[in-house]
């Protein structure tokens, strides 16, 4: 079930990727988080901005995006509940990409000066934040490989596996059924594919019996088959407590 407070959403995510302890959790709970709701396709941060806040995704789906000179959009990564997409803004003052909602979504904004002070005083929290941005970078590397070298069928299967796995690991879905209410055009922008080919590729995955779709709901009816089709290995998501 979704956590009840914005702090819980943040803490749950950090617990899946780091070894923060009870004392750290108590400190994290003191971060003032300003919640705000957004409709789909809203630019939260734009390239060139100098934000003084970072935000944690509390609900919905966010994409980092870049535009080519002639206006073509590439979605370079997805972010789900618990993720802090622009945490790098804590140290890189000018944003080098946009962050936009892909679905209706709720964000929690945290002041940079508060986060900085926390990091100076609590090294385990600083490490957890660092790990978070390192894992984001690992996801970007995977996406470059996905878009650059995998064929459309594998590419689509891979991105669906990643979304389902990430939503599951932060407790947003229980099984392999995910509501992914993003447009085919957005999927195309994430995969570097035309909308027509996005439809064809989804049709191929259905035909192979790997997924079933109802509206925006995607059901991985054959999870092992889908991970195989998607060339999906979870290593790059670095889940699990790293303390050992």
């Amino acid at each position: 079930m979704p956590p009840t407070s914005s702090s819980d959403t943040l803490i749950r995510k950090l617990q899946t990727i780091s070894d923060i302890r009870e004392a750290d959790i108590a400190v994290l709970k003191t971060i003032p988080i300003q919640e705000k709701d957004f409709s789909a396709s809203h630019d939260l941060v734009r390239e060139g901005d100098r934000p003084v806040y970072s935000f944690v995704v509390l609900d919905g789906l966010v994409g980092s995006t870049k535009y080519t000179g002639d206006g073509k959009r590439q979605i370079t990564s997805f972010f789900v509940a618990g993720d802090i997409p622009d945490l790098h803004g804590l140290h890189l003052s000018v944003m080098d990409c946009n962050f936009s909602t892909l679905t209706p979504a709720r964000m929690g904004f945290m002041r940079h000066d508060v986060l900085r002070n926390l990091c100076y005083q609590h090294p385990r929290i600083a490490t957890a934040f660092w790990r978070s941005t390192l894992i984001d970078a690992a996801i970007y590397r995977e996406w470059v490989t996905n878009v650059g070298r995998r064929e459309a069928y594998t590419r689509m299967a891979h991105i669906l596996c990643e979304l389902i796995f990430r939503l599951k690991s932060v407790g947003r879905i229980q099984d392999h059924v995910a509501d992914i209410p993003i447009t085919q055009a957005a999927l195309g922008d994430a995969l570097g594919l035309s909308t027509v080919h996005v439809n064809r590729t989804l049709q191929e995955l259905r035909r192979e019996g790997l997924i079933a779709t109802t509206g925006s709901r995607v059901h991985a009816i054959d999870w092992p088959g889908l991970t195989h089709a998607g060339d999906f290995d979870t290593t790059y998501l670095h889940q699990g407590n790293p303390a050992a």
């Binding site: 439809n199 064809r200 049709q203 191929e204």
Partner: peptide, 8 residues
């Protein structure tokens, strides 16, 4: 032939 069931 793959039929487009979603449309654009």
């Amino acid at each position: 032939v793959l039929q487009d069931e979603i449309g654009v």
